[in-house]
Design a protein around this nucleic acid. Structure first.
Lengths: 343, 343
DNA sequence: CTGAAAGCGCTAACAC
DNA sequence: GTGTTAGCGCTTTCAG
């Protein structure tokens, strides 16, 4: 690391300095076999003397395989990536990638243009693999990735098909946990505000609600479909109150919606949790600060990102990892009754 | 886009199909001059027939300049990127980049390894430029970027030096606004909980507090230094209460700290805003949902990202844009008194 | 305006 | 074990 921090140092220079052929140098760099200890050492010295750094572009071009992987987020809404959820996922991914020689490219495949570019990046082998998140319905991205003939790992399961490789949180189990908790609290007229039914998570959470009530032998028809957003949650709660005024507990498929619902309940003079108990999903940071604080299902978001990255790495290495479902857990707070006052 | 979605289509193939030389084809692709209309059209047809997509690696190698730009986040804490703030910035950046042919690489220059890799990426011209965020003290990253001899745009101003190109929010002005609001509300014993003083934002917000009180002719010595975190805010508020029990208004340099402070105040039986009025900074999403909701300074976060990207693009294009300071504004909520009950 | 030729820095057969 | 030889797909002089 002594000389020239600005200029490119080439392999040839290293080879010359070390007094070996370029192939030998190359072999050392990629620690391939068939190099004598002496040469190996010489090359290594030259590398550190010169501060050699391989040129990733040349390497990718020659070997037809890139070092970068891409994280693509698909959504008709460009703001989707502003969701703190993704920030966490990215942290998880980066923490794994940082240990390897893979760079992370971020692509918001929002517009047609964005999608085209993703296809282009994949097709020209600028990226070795893709992690795909947040697709609803039959997302064109999925197809695009398949065509590109590049390893794809999904974060979350699309609503319409089960990918070969994916990591997901146990949405169904979590929803079941949430609903069971409501049952445990003594609620008997339990409704739900679902997420979008064209997303895997929305569907799974709805199923979990049904599971729990089936087991408890309770009616599972107090259902309003929402869209995961705060305002959507408010609207849905109004509908729910109208359609089923007797509801005494609600499982809400996202904390954002739960916050909207909370507002509506307050405005209607309905007390949480005394009159109606609430459970959300996601454990966003705001959930701790609402009044009352929100009981919710916590997801291991950063691990989700980590495992996505690990899985992609595994596929890249020629393995065939199995899909992974990460556990979710109940985080009790006051919106379902305090511990000192269990209903 | 008819044939072969999987295979690389090369420029030569396009040239052959169009019945022109490779150079001609290349010129058309890069819409350079010196090509007859006829040839141009032929090439364009061939391109779309074949679904040609230039290979970015080859291009970068040959031209010695990459298409990708990197967003590097520096922090001793890998979780820093989990901050929703960054997610917003990234959205802003992406929205601009999506219109261009630049890819976005994300690098968390957390570990020494991460920093080394960043240097490597820059040095081997895998990236055309860098956007750097969140540095405190004399961040090694800044130096690294300079050495690499690649355009660098800073997001926020480091505490120790003023970079050539940067975009920042008007932290000082915002802090002043916040403090002035406290004055307007009739508070006279106004304290502050600052952020980290080795970050530009922490410093600037403290100065803004001083500015406002100097103008108002009020005492500006009720100062406790915090660290931007929720727990840090709680600790700081305890200290402040001990050191200056007479305080009746506090400007707190981040909403996270303000939330911690709010908790301490509540526990101490001090009513907000009646006894003590509070103003935070950032307008994080939780600020709307605390009890009482938090008056705070809103920053244009997404625009910040957008402008960073635009500035980098400008530099890349050979321009010399001036640094940019984005305005901040006061968002009034109940923590400084309701509008129906202005103190 | 146009095309030929010479690389960019590296990998990968292939002979030795 | 080792070095030589071709390229990877593109840009870029440089003559025509």
């Amino acid at each position: 690391m002594t000389e020239s921090l600005r200029r490119q140092v080439t392999l040839d220079e290293v080879a010359e300095r070390a007094g070996v052929s370029r192939s030998a140098a190359s072999r050392v760099i990629n620690n391939a076999p068939h190099v004598s200890r002496a040469k190996r050492a010489a090359v290594e010295r030259a590398v550190s003397d010169l501060g050699y750094v391989p040129n990733a572009n040349a390497r990718a071009l020659a070997s037809q395989q890139a070092g970068a992987v891409v994280l693509a987020i698909s959504s008709e809404n460009p703001r989707a990536f502003a969701d703190p959820f993704f920030a966490e996922v990215v942290v998880g991914i980066s923490s794994v990638l940082e240990e390897t020689d893979h760079e992370l490219m971020l692509m918001m495949a929002t517009s047609a243009r964005g999608q085209a570019r993703l296809g282009q990046v994949l097709r020209t082998r600028q990226a070795a693999g893709v992690m795909l998140m947040s697709m609803h319905g039959d997302d064109p991205l999925a197809r695009l990735a398949e065509q590109a003939d590049v390893p794809v790992v999904f974060g979350g399961v699309p609503a319409t098909f089960e990918p070969r490789y994916y990591v997901d949180a146990d949405n169904r189990g979590g929803a079941r946990l949430a609903t069971e908790h409501l049952v445990t609290c003594g609620r008997t007229r339990i409704g739900t505000i679902t997420g979008r039914m064209d997303e895997g998570a929305g569907l799974a959470r709805y199923r979990g609600y049904q599971d729990a009530l089936a087991v408890a032998g309770l009616d599972a028809t107090r259902v309003i479909h929402g869209d995961f957003s705060e305002d959507g949650g408010a609207d849905a709660m109004r509908e729910l109150l109208t359609a089923h005024p007797d509801v005494d507990g609600v499982f809400i498929a996202s904390d954002q919606m739960a916050i909207g619902a909370l507002r509506v309940l307050q405005e209607a003079g309905i007390t949480v949790p005394t009159d109606v108990a609430l459970v959300g999903f996601n454990d966003i940071s705001t959930a701790r600060h609402t009044t009352p604080p929100l009981t919710t299902i916590s997801q291991p978001i950063q691990p989700l990102g980590r495992e996505m990255a690990r899985m992609l790495l595994a596929v890249l290495a020629g393995e065939r990892p199995s899909p992974l479902i990460l556990p979710t857990r109940l985080t009790k707070r006051e919106s379902t009754g305090t511990s000192t006052n269990p209903t």
